[in-house]
Amino acid sequence: MEVKKHSKQVVTDGLPLASAEKVMILVHGRGASADSILTLKDHLLVDGFALLAPQATNHTWYPYSFMAPVEQNEPWLSSAIELLESLVEDCLKAGIKREHIHLLGFSQGACLTLEFAARTASRYGSVTAFTGGLIGEKIDRSNYKRKFEETPVFIGCSDRDMHVPVERVYASTNILTEMGARVTEKIYPGMGHTINEDEINIVNQQLSGSGKDK
């Protein structure tokens, strides 16, 4: 019988959760793995962080495009959101403040990260979406009832990504801004489906709480 939800498999790195004051939850893309997204630690200013990378069942958070009707991606989507919520709860129980919890994802993981963050909006440390947008055939604004309280958010994407239309990036930025996030959006001409150095620099500025390059 096909499994209809994600099991809680989490790869960790950095400091143990019990002794860290900051945490980053890193969400991998379709077909990738927790181990692969954790390689970003070599490029990010995450010394002193606990790093948590959940693993999607069958390496996929939901089966269809993030712009398919939501019901086509259920129950996988709800299960993925519940998994991220459980990780945030683990951090809070360990004594880490929500404003010291940073969320980051790439591609399918970026879409999931943005959707989770918008549904649970509060003052997070930061939210990073490398190539992603809010989920749904049409964005359901009624899912987002809370405020971000000035959380810094970064969304980066190519101007012609094969999976994420730039119009969805613009729409997501507008909604998150309305919700009180401080959104930095960068659209890169012809970048391809990847992460570039400029994006890493912007995220490191957010992580350091500084407007200066590190």
Rank of each mutant, 00 (worst) to 15 (best):
E178H: 03
N174A: 15
E167I: 08
F154Q: 02
T194H: 11
T184S: 11
K147D: 13
R182W: 13
S172H: 07
I139Y: 01
D198P: 02
P152Q: 12
H193W: 13
F148A: 07
V153Q: 03
R182S: 15
D198R: 13
E178F: 03
R160T: 11
H163P: 11
K147Y: 12
V183F: 02
I139V: 05
Y144F: 15
T173W: 01
I187Q: 03
V169T: 09
N196L: 07
T177N: 08
G180F: 09
R168A: 14
G156V: 04
I155M: 06
M179N: 05
K186N: 12
I139W: 00
A171W: 01
P165Y: 06
K138F: 06
H193A: 08
H193L: 08
I195H: 13
I139P: 00
E178P: 02
D159W: 09
N143H: 14
S142Q: 11
T151Q: 05
D159Q: 02
D161T: 02
E185M: 14
G192N: 01
N196E: 09
V153W: 05
D159E: 04
M162V: 14
M191W: 09
D140Q: 08
T173G: 08
N196Q: 07
I175T: 03
H193C: 09
E185F: 07
M179R: 05
G156K: 05
V164P: 04
S158A: 08
P165A: 11
G156E: 03
A171E: 14
T194R: 11
F154V: 04
V169C: 06
Y170P: 01
G156M: 04
Y188G: 00
N196H: 11
A171P: 03
I175W: 01
R141G: 00
H193T: 08
P165T: 13
I187L: 10
